[in-house]
Design a protein around this nucleic acid. Structure first.
Lengths: 115, 115
DNA sequence: GATTGACATTCGAAAAAACATATATATGAT
DNA sequence: ATCATATATATGTTTTTTCGAATGTCAATC
């Protein structure tokens, strides 16, 4: 029954790293993504992506769900409304920042990573 | 004529420190504050406050204006609209986080720091 | 049950950020 | 000119964050 406590400071600390911010924006825009999608979209090593996703998970911004071999990440719908709106504003005003990654992601979706 | 470029990453890096986030929220809520107000409100040393204000100034989130002996800081009205809305959402949803500092600030305002 | 694929975690090093202290500058008053 | 006050910057140090590489775990398949 308790809503997860998310201090504004820990929220913004999560957004203050390039990998975390981009991963979060992509997941927000796509509703959910698996780790292999993000590795391709961000062009980063698997441990690096995984570590930053863990940060976002630990402060309850993201949820993870294993389905078979893959782990899917999505934005926690229980996020405070103000935080959700911040994500919305950011995602829709950072096209240039995300451009390359979205291109990579679309290519990833057409390949054979995850179903 | 050019609007100042503010990448989402550098914006959120500025918000990811306790001193900077609180100072920015207080300045946003009060329209403008001088350094001595912030020293009292945040209960921090002068160089520490000054250094973090400089960070916020350097990425164009804050403007500074000297009036006599005092330097007043305010939110840059040329901030991108999405960023301004993020400040609005944050300021009005972090009462508990700012509570003590607002109390301190009101006491500061009644004392003899700046006019 | 051994292996493979997808992902997570640990560890030590390197880089970045934050700190306290000292010093500099700018303004107004004496 | 000198001094006090308000603020900024510079410097050396400590703390935090990030990273790559290696290793561990879990589920599916052979």
């Amino acid at each position: 029954m308790s809503t997860p406590i998310l201090s504004p400071l820990s929220f913004y600390k999560c957004l203050s790293d390039d990998t975390r911010l981009k991963a979060l924006m992509l997941i927000y825009l796509e509703k959910e993504l698996c780790v292999c999608d993000l590795i391709t979209a961000l062009e980063l090593s698997q441990p690096k992506v995984s570590r930053h996703l863990a940060d976002l998970r630990k402060c309850h911004i993201l949820l993870d769900e294993r389905r078979g071999k893959w782990v899917y990440y999505s934005v926690n719908p229980k996020l405070p409304e103000w935080a959700m709106k911040v994500l919305e504003l950011t995602a829709h005003n950072t096209e240039a920042y995300l451009n390359d990654n979205i291109t990579n992601l679309n290519m990833a979706k057409q390949s054979e990573c995850c179903p």
